[in-house]
């Protein structure tokens, strides 16, 4: 599923990375807990979160997350968007709750990240 399709399904406003909307997402992860995101996320994932701070972008950078969607109508400040632009990270904002946004994407065929691998 492309980021463009994701933006349409979530009726999301694209805040950064307009030029990267043809990128394909393979999985998605919905969480406000960056500790869990760091433990679960694998390849070519988008992150849907209600947590708005600079560490969301930093976590995305470390994991090569391909897009962050801020849910529940939350809008990141300019500082966060600037950090996202610096690393070419597409950022969107949707009015949907995290649950609904995840459900919408799952319903249209975007699976979740797999279970955490064993130690």
């Amino acid at each position: 599923m492309t980021l463009r399709q994701i933006a349409e399904l979530l009726q999301a406003e694209v805040l950064t990375g307009e030029d990267k909307l043809d990128t394909e997402a393979v999985t998605a992860c919905g969480s406000d807990l960056m500790s869990d995101v760091l433990a679960f996320v694998k390849d070519r994932t988008i992150l849907i979160t209600g947590l708005v701070n600079a560490h969301v972008v930093r976590t995305a950078e470390m994991l090569d997350i391909i897009c962050v969607v801020f849910a529940r109508g939350k809008r990141p400040g300019e500082e966060i968007l600037e950090a996202a632009r610096e690393i070419d990270l597409p950022v969107m904002a949707t009015k949907m709750t995290t649950y609904t946004a995840c459900g919408e994407l799952y319903l249209h065929g975007l699976p979740g990240t797999k279970e955490k691998p064993q130690s």
Partner: peptide
């Protein structure tokens, strides 16, 4: 409050 401190850090490093 920043989204950390869930007790996943050390095991995740080891993994």
């Amino acid at each position: 409050s920043l989204g950390f401190g869930a007790g996943m850090g050390l095991p995740n490093m080891k993994r």
